Simulated scan of single mutants.
Amino acid sequence: MSPDKLVRMANQIALFFAAQGDAAAPDAVATHLRQFWDPRMRRAILDHAKSGGAGLSPIAAAAVARLAVDEPA
């Protein structure tokens, strides 16, 4: 899956969870990514974030950063 599509999907998920507020939304998005995204998709979004994370919304970027803490290298 292309990075652009993953970014679009992550941003849509972040928009959905934005109603929870800036403090809770990134954790909710990260949980969603862990539970519903294939490991290859998670690796691809992590790689995209490592190379700058172009296009990720602030909530999506924060969620991917939280995801990076738990994902094996």
Rank of each mutant, 00 (worst) to 15 (best):
A19M: 14
D22E: 10
Q12M: 10
L6T: 07
M41S: 08
A18S: 03
A73F: 07
I13Q: 00
N11I: 03
A54N: 12
A62H: 07
P26T: 01
D70T: 15
A54P: 02
H32K: 01
K50I: 14
R34V: 05
S57Q: 01
L33Y: 00
A14E: 04
H48C: 08
L67Q: 04
S57W: 00
M9D: 14
A68T: 14
M9G: 10
L33V: 02
A54G: 08
A23V: 05
D27Q: 08
G21P: 01
A65N: 13
R66L: 15
A44R: 11
P58C: 04
I13Y: 00
G21V: 04
L56S: 06
I13H: 00
T31S: 15
P3K: 06
Q35W: 09
T31P: 13
A73C: 05
R42Q: 06
P26L: 00
D70A: 12
R8G: 13
Q35S: 12
L6N: 06
A14F: 07
S57P: 01
I59A: 02
M41Q: 13
R43V: 04
P72H: 09
D38N: 15
M9S: 14
D38C: 11
I45E: 01
M1D: 12
A28T: 12
D70M: 11
L33T: 01
A14G: 13
G52T: 01
K50M: 12
G52Q: 02
A30C: 03
S2K: 10
T31I: 15
L15N: 09
A24H: 03
N11G: 07
A18P: 00
G52R: 01
I45S: 02
H48R: 08
M1T: 13
S2Y: 10
R40V: 07
R66V: 12
Q20M: 08
D47H: 10
F16E: 04
H32I: 00
K50S: 15
P39Q: 14
E71Q: 07
F16H: 08
R34S: 03
A60M: 09
R40A: 10
K5W: 14
A24T: 03
M1P: 08
S57F: 01
D47P: 04
D22I: 05
A54T: 07
A68G: 15
G52K: 00
A62S: 09
F36S: 10
A14D: 06
W37R: 14
R40D: 11
A28L: 15
K50G: 15
G52P: 00
A23F: 02
A23W: 00
